[in-house]
Nucleic acid binder design. Sequence first.
DNA 1: ATGGTAGGCGTCCTA
Length: 259
Amino acid sequence: MKIATFNINGVKARLPALLDWLKAATPDVVALQEIKSVDEGFPRAEIEDLGYHVETHGQKGFNGVALLSRRPLEDVVRGLPGDDADEQARWIEATVSGDGAAVRVCGLYLPNGNPAPGPKYDYKLAWMARLEARARALLAEEAPAVMLGDYNVIPEARDVHDPAAWGQDALYLPQTRAAFRRILHLGFTDAVRAFDAGEAYTFWDYQAGAWPKNHGIRIDHALLTPQAADRLRAAGVDRAVRGGDKPSDHVPVWLEIDL
DNA sequence: ATGGTAGGCGTCCTA
């Protein structure tokens, strides 16, 4: 089963690129971020025509996440637990059954947090604490699960072209990276890092020629529970997507597990 | 060199 994440930066503006990538990459399950659409505005028919079930958690103008799956999406939950007052659409999870076992797929769009310090950074850290709580509960299930999406976290110096230039950024501050490590070290596997120790950027800014200069960062991740990691067969980054027509500033990250 | 670009029911906000 091939599971992927893709921050598409506007599902309506990105629909041709999304459909092209779905046809070429043929993922079984996809977590989308930044759909920037309410549920009613999501171009569901075009994606269903490719054989996908669609579940959305949208919001007007900003944020918004969705899950696509060739197999049915069961027990869908929208919103990250821990703050009933949180209005931002950044989390959706569902179960997908394979031939033998099933996998819990959690799609996430972690807050950017800039500028830091400030209320946006406080919200990011609070959201990461809620994510850690959900991660602990997933581990306690002792079953295959994947938390994947745009984490807005640069884990290490090797994940950014110029660490010094990002020193004060909310994506790379020590407190951000420590919060990410607290989750990772609970027992998760970073799927891409299980296969690639080198440069594996997933985002290049639209500005200042970041793509042609390869000024990238690695901020889209897939974290697997031990029971999912046992089944991990491959993972990677679809870097070439960044060079397509009207591209997102992110590219897809994918993994394959035996299910 | 404090710029540059993209998307959204938008004339600013977010990234």
